[in-house]
């Protein structure tokens, strides 16, 4: 497709985005000239070393912080502030502990009539497989269940874009594998645009359509890798290992421990 058509189709466009922070009188650049596009319904991973500013980038995309240079466009409009059309899922402690599972999922649905709200809540409880826990409080749930609850709460308001900030980072490795499969299943059922931040290479190659590789601070886009393996992805397949190797190399990590 031509460049003009591609630009017109971009759901999310990052255009030379930069962000500086003031600390102790000094100005520190966290992000520098970030530019890339995300198409509608695409699953994009942002990968980079810890502390490189991935979360800051996500906060900018969500409208929680303004960029100090460049612009962020969603559907052609500049991002001005947080909006329920693009919901951020946090790494931990994102669910509201004083609300039940139902209460959390229904959080963004206050404007709906009661019957419709209840139906939606039930639908998403089922989707994230939390049946039986509707009246439970988050303190009774495991880490993985709390993250599922966050996703359900996010999806319930029908956002266009879902931002996920290392959502499985606080979970043990077994739960992480399960949650990745869960997320893919949900994504394939109700297609949204997803921007997923992680520092885990395998996670990126397993989940994403495209991987944006960020350098360490000040973060720049080093490369964009296309993952052309169809789902379900076999993590022992040669193509997978090849892409994984490629990504490792781009981040500049050694192959042996």
């Amino acid at each position: 497709m031509g460049a003009a058509e591609a630009a017109a189709q971009a759901k999310l466009r990052m255009d030379g985005v930069g962000r500086r922070f003031e600390r102790d009188g000094k100005s520190i650049a966290v992000l520098d000239g970030i530019s890339f596009d995300v198409s509608d319904g695409e699953f994009v991973c942002l990968v980079g070393p810890s502390g490189c500013g991935k979360s800051t980038l996500l906060n900018l995309m969500g409208g929680f912080l303004p960029p100090t240079s460049g612009s962020i466009l969603i559907d052609g409009e500049t991002v001005e502030g947080p909006d329920p059309r693009r919901i951020l899922v946090f790494q931990e402690r994102g669910v509201f502990p004083w609300l039940t599972v139902e209460g959390n999922i229904a959080f963004g649905l206050a404007k709906l009539p009661k019957a419709e709200r209840q139906e939606r809540v039930a639908h998403y409880v089922r989707m994230v497989q939390l049946e039986g826990f509707e009246r439970s409080y988050p303190s009774d749930l495991s880490g993985g269940m709390k993250q599922r609850l966050q996703v359900a709460r996010a999806l319930a308001v029908n956002p266009d874009i879902l931002y996920l900030d290392e959502p499985f980072g606080a979970l043990d490795s077994v739960t992480r594998l399960v949650m990745r499969a869960e997320l893919l299943r949900i994504w394939q059922t109700e297609r949204r645009t997803i921007v997923f931040v992680t520092h885990d290479i395998d996670e990126a190659v397993q989940l994403a359509d495209r991987v944006v590789v960020l350098s360490s601070r000040p973060a720049k886009v080093m490369d964009i890798l296309e993952i052309d393996i169809p789902h379900p992805r076999n993590i022992s397949s040669p193509r997978y290992l090849e892409l994984r190797d490629d990504l490792l190399g781009k981040i500049g990590l050694a192959h042996s421990v």
């Binding site: 919901i87 509201f96 959080f107 963004g108 308001v157």
Partner: peptide, 26 residues
């Protein structure tokens, strides 16, 4: 925690709603 306030803003709540539905229970 600021995370609660951010989440509330994300869902499109007005400042007064944030105070009543999130900050106060928290």
């Amino acid at each position: 925690p600021s995370i609660f306030r951010r989440a509330a803003r994300n869902f499109g709540l007005s400042p007064l709603q944030i105070l009543a539905r999130v900050v106060f229970p928290a």
